[in-house]
Amino acid sequence: MNLTVRNIAESCSEQEVREFLKRELGHYAKNVEVVDAGTPGAYATVELDANVPYVGDVIARQIQGKHLGGQPLEASADIFSDEPPPDAH
């Protein structure tokens, strides 16, 4: 399950974003990838260590609105993974 965090301030470095999210998410953050740090379209994808869909929504609500670099973050959980669906047979 992934968490996407948007509205990251241009003034924030990739390291700052990664450290902030790891601190806020604790053991739930398996992997943090920051894309286009220092640009207006910067965002982060966090691989969550949780298998229950509602946990991602709860975590997204916890991050939503927290401030990083003076801007409120926007967060959403992606309950779909890259794994293929189970065989229906």
Rank of each mutant, 00 (worst) to 15 (best):
V52F: 06
A42D: 06
P72V: 03
V52E: 14
E19P: 00
V55G: 00
G38Y: 04
G65A: 02
N2L: 08
A60C: 02
T39F: 07
Q64F: 00
Y54N: 07
S11F: 04
K66S: 02
Q15P: 01
V55H: 10
D49M: 12
A60Y: 03
A75M: 02
D57H: 14
V55M: 10
G65V: 03
T39V: 03
I59V: 15
Q62L: 10
Y28I: 00
D87G: 01
E19Q: 13
D87E: 10
R61I: 00
M1N: 03
K66W: 00
S76H: 14
A60S: 09
A44R: 09
V46E: 05
E16S: 11
G26F: 06
V46Y: 07
V32S: 00
D57G: 15
N7R: 14
V35H: 13
R23H: 11
P85Q: 09
E33Q: 14
A50L: 02
K22Q: 15
V55D: 02
G65F: 07
G56W: 08
P40C: 11
D78T: 12
E19G: 00
A60T: 03
H67T: 12
E14S: 14
P53C: 10
Y28W: 14
E14M: 04
E16K: 04
P40H: 04
M1P: 11
G26H: 04
A50V: 04
I63W: 08
R6H: 10
T4H: 14
E24P: 02
V17R: 08
G56A: 10
L73M: 07
H27W: 02
G70H: 08
Y43V: 00
R6S: 11
P72M: 04
D36V: 01
E47R: 11
I63F: 07
K66E: 03
V32F: 01
L73R: 11
S76M: 12
